[in-house]
């Protein structure tokens, strides 16, 4: 394929997909190890009411207020889950289930009540995202990457998710030692003076930020898939956290690229005329990667578990 076709139509969605996948997979590693994997699921459900409220408050579909609304909803949800868990003495899973389903219901209700039919805001869009539509019309070929005029036309989602990714990487690098310590041995970390509850909250907030930024570009289903599938697959490949994170990034990038290509061109190879949802396909590919590691990964069994023939 020539650059003239690839750069405007496929480069930006592909990059956005890759960045979103990695930005979610990095905090996902720690969430999976801390048995908080479903926080990502909860956050991506409550983003909907946040966005709808932001739309109702401002009356416009603008990225800024919506990101704020979504982030606010994520924080409210995390606080509510914690409050219900403590006040009602309910196990965390059930508390999470109560909060995110109810907030999602509020989102759907608000959406139906308000007159949003004239603008492009609906539940399906929120769930599936619209990766394919993030094209770069100003580009004419590879040369456009160096052309300031054309670069101004890059979809705004690309720089946003790139900044988020850089932030997530910085967080992981700067807090690497305390994060690793508190993930594996919270009590020991506390005796060393690490403020584990603050760190845990910070991790959830970083996860929420990357979820909201990725959600904006690619929809909630990729967010859930990328939080859990690449880290879980990486967990089955190695016993070392450093290697696990490396594997998870590899798996995230592989899912994004393969998923995008399969969604765009797979149906054409099979003789169909239209592409299928890239977000769904990326999630599916990440699941296939996980299935392969679950069957053949070198560290797939629990340590000490009897070998099964």
């Amino acid at each position: 394929m020539s650059g003239a076709e690839f750069v405007p139509l496929s480069l930006t969605p592909l990059l956005i997909g890759i960045f979103a996948a990695v930005a979610c997979a990095l905090p996902g590693n720690f969430l999976v190890l801390r048995r908080q994997a479903l926080i990502g699921d909860a956050i991506s459900h409550v983003v909907l009411p946040g966005i709808v409220v932001a739309f109702l408050a401002t009356g416009v579909i603008a990225a800024g207020p919506m990101m704020l609304g979504a982030g606010g909803a994520a924080v409210v949800a995390v606080i509510l889950i914690e409050a219900i868990r403590r006040l009602g003495r309910i196990e965390p899973g059930a508390a999470m289930g109560v909060v995110f389903t109810s907030m999602f219901a509020v989102g759907v209700l608000l959406l139906e009540q308000s007159d949003t039919s004239s603008v492009h805001l609906d539940v399906e869009h929120a769930l599936f995202g619209n990766l394919e539509s993030l094209i770069w019309l100003d580009a004419t070929g590879w040369a456009s990457l160096l052309d300031p005029d054309a670069l101004r036309g890059v979809p705004v989602e690309l720089p946003r998710i790139a900044v988020t990714l850089v932030g997530v990487i910085l967080f992981t690098v700067i807090f690497w030692r305390p994060l690793k310590l508190s993930t594996f041995d919270e009590g020991f970390a506390r005796t060393l003076g690490v403020r584990t509850n603050v760190l845990g909250m910070a991790l959830v907030i970083v996860a929420a930020i990357s979820a909201v930024a990725a959600f904006d570009a690619v929809g909630s289903i990729i967010v859930i898939a990328m939080f859990i599938c690449p880290p879980a697959a990486a967990r089955l490949m190695t016993n070392r956290l450093e290697h696990q994170i490396g594997w998870s990034v590899v798996f995230a990038v592989a899912s994004a690229v393969l998923g995008y290509v399969l969604a765009g061109y797979g149906p054409l190879w099979l003789g169909a005329r239209d592409a299928v949802s890239a977000a769904g396909m990326i999630a599916t590919v990440s699941g296939i990667i996980l299935a392969i590691t679950a069957v053949a990964g070198p560290c797939r069994t629990r340590s000490g578990a009897p070998v099964q023939d």
């Binding site: 289903i221 990729i222 859990i228 990326i282 797939r300």
Partner: peptide, 19 residues
Amino acid sequence: HTRLAEDAAIGVILSVFFG
């Protein structure tokens, strides 16, 4: 059969099947 905790397994099934 794998070392994944139940919450991770739930997330995997949920997201992959939905995708």
